[in-house]
Design a protein around this nucleic acid. Structure first.
Length: 191
DNA sequence: TGAGTGATTGACT
DNA sequence: GTCAATCACTCAT
C-alpha cells in the first residue's frame, strides 16, 4: 500500500485534480472498509467565483485556508455531502472535489448505505459517493495521511484518456474547464 | 424537468 | 437577535 505523500497536495490544484484520477480513496469505519478508484474530479481555485472560499473566510470554509492533505466535507442541499481534498499551501484556499468513484472494497456496505445493488449507481455522483463511502460532517477536517481516510496509489495505470471539460451543477464560472474524468470509466456522473 | 432539502450567509432590525 | 435567498445535488416524474 502506498499512501499519497503530503507534498502531493502542494501541486498546482489543477495538476492534483488530474493526478488523483486512478488513485484509490479509502475510508475506514466501524462498519468496515470501503474504497473506490477516483474516476472524476473538479478543481476549485482561490480566484474562482464558484469556490466556497473565493469571497471571504467563514467558519464553513476556513478549512480550505488550512493544511493541504486534509478533507473538506460539506453538507449541501439539505441532504447530501460532498468530499473534497485540500490542496495548495496554508493560506491559499484551493481544493479538489471528488465527484465519482469506481467501487473497489466494501461493495456490500455501500449497497446497504445507498439502498441499491446497482454498482454503477453507487458512487457516480458527489452526493452518492459520500453516502456510499459513509462520509458525513465528522469526516470534515480529517488528515488524509492518517489511518481513517486516505488515498493510495496502487501503481495501476488506468490506461484511459483523461477528458477535461466544464464543471457541473454550478452557476458561477461554469465555463471553466476544471472538471476531469476518465473517458473509459462507466462510473462518471455525466458525460 | 422540477421539487425537495437544511446549513450557511449576509442583510436587516 | 431574526429572516430569506442561496446552493459544487438527487430522485422521481
Amino acid at each position: 500500500m502506498n499512501i499519497l505523500p503530503g507534498d502531493f497536495y502542494l501541486k498546482p490544484t489543477i495538476e492534483a485534480a488530474r493526478e488523483l484520477l486512478g488513485k484509490r480513496l479509502v475510508h475506514q469505519t466501524d462498519d468496515g472498509i470501503t474504497s473506490g478508484t477516483i474516476v472524476e474530479t473538479e478543481a476549485y481555485l482561490c480566484d474562482d467565483p464558484a469556490c466556497h472560499a473565493s469571497a471571504k473566510k467563514t467558519p464553513r470554509n476556513e478549512i480550505m485556508f488550512g493544511e493541504p492533505g486534509f478533507s473538506y466535507v460539506y453538507f449541501i442541499y439539505g441532504m447530501y455531502y460532498c468530499f473534497n481534498t485540500i490542496t495548495a499551501p496554508v493560506g491559499i484556499p484551493e481544493a479538489v472535489l471528488i465527484r465519482a468513484l469506481e467501487p473497489v472494497d466494501g461493495l456490500d456496505i455501500m449497497s446497504r448505505r445507498r439502498g441499491t445493488n446497482d454498482i454503477k449507481n453507487l458512487t457516480n455522483g458527489p452526493g452518492k459517493l459520500c453516502t456510499a463511502m459513509g462520509f458525513n460532517k465528522i469526516d470534515n477536517k480529517v488528515d488524509l495521511l492518517g489511518d481513517h481516510i486516505y488515498i493510495v496509489d496502487d501503481g495501476i495505470e488506468h490506461n484511459s484518456e483523461i477528458v477535461q471539460t466544464t464543471r457541473i451543477g454550478i452557476k458561477l464560472a461554469a465555463g471553466e474547464l476544471l472538471r476531469f474524468y476518465l473517458k473509459e470509466s462507466s462510473f462518471v456522473s455525466r458525460r
